[in-house]
Amino acid sequence: MLELSRRRFLIGVGLSGLAVASPRLMAAGSSAGEQAFHSRPIPSTGESVPAIGMGTWITFNVGGDQYLIDQRTRVLETFLERNGTVIDCSPMYGSAADVIGAGLDKLHAHDRIFAATKIWTSDGSETREQAATSERRWGIDRFDLLQVHNLLAWQEHLATLKEMKAEGRVRYIGITTSHGRRHSELARVMETEPLDFVQLTYNVLDREAEERLLPLARERGIAVLVNRPFQGGSLFRRFQSEPLPSWAGEAGVGNWAEFFLKFIISHPAVTCAIPATTSVEHMQENMGAMYGQLPDASQRRMMAEYVRQL
């Protein structure tokens, strides 16, 4: 797991204010000697995390297929080489946790990641047991972030997660939704519970979160993980054959993956987008969004308008 080093802490605290003021400035937030990449502070502590993470829904669920396990390990290796740390999973994702664990073992990378998973059971008394099972499958001692999956039995799980956080069994706690569902209920939880993170769907087409959830996250000091940044791949299917806008370079965008991801991470409330992929090449493209210039507010409006017209 990613431990909070003094250097990391100082960088995170020092740059947290800058992140809110200007996403562009956060490109200077990486350590010297490495290519600058965009990172974001977790509001509850100031700890900084890279702005692009890795989701594992569908992509890492390959069962016992050693050929595919090795291939996904190369995807994970590319992610880590490009300074990614945030990996998100769920017990719902079949064998994905085991495949992550196998990859981390092979790469000896357990201490280089920000490990995030979810609690996914309707039995509110199984929180600790499921977290322990996930720790074993990942091969780690504890998670950085545990989230209640899709608000399932959230009252019971969140109560236990708060206890676990107080005991030091987990560093951050949160709650998730996806596909734009149950936003009203999520907002109520955000308003009343001491969350470190929320996870929600947000992309250049699915922008409902801009209305209530993202402003609320900023107001309440809650970090935001963004799932389905490519709308489950459909954004590529719809737009990849289209040309990028002529002004894309001015917004720091060199391909469609960067277009979609930079749109997301340039929102001031967003902490980290977690795209998923099975391909090393696509991982390289995804991680490319963590580097270079980010679009400003007016360019973001142009991006949304451009895809709307397409």
Binding site: I58, N61, V62, L68, G94
Partner: peptide, 15 residues
């Protein structure tokens, strides 16, 4: 329907 399928076609065909 796609929301309920949690693996890709390559994984299934390789079975």
């Amino acid at each position: 329907l796609q929301d309920f399928v949690m693996f890709g076609p390559e994984v299934f065909l390789r079975l």
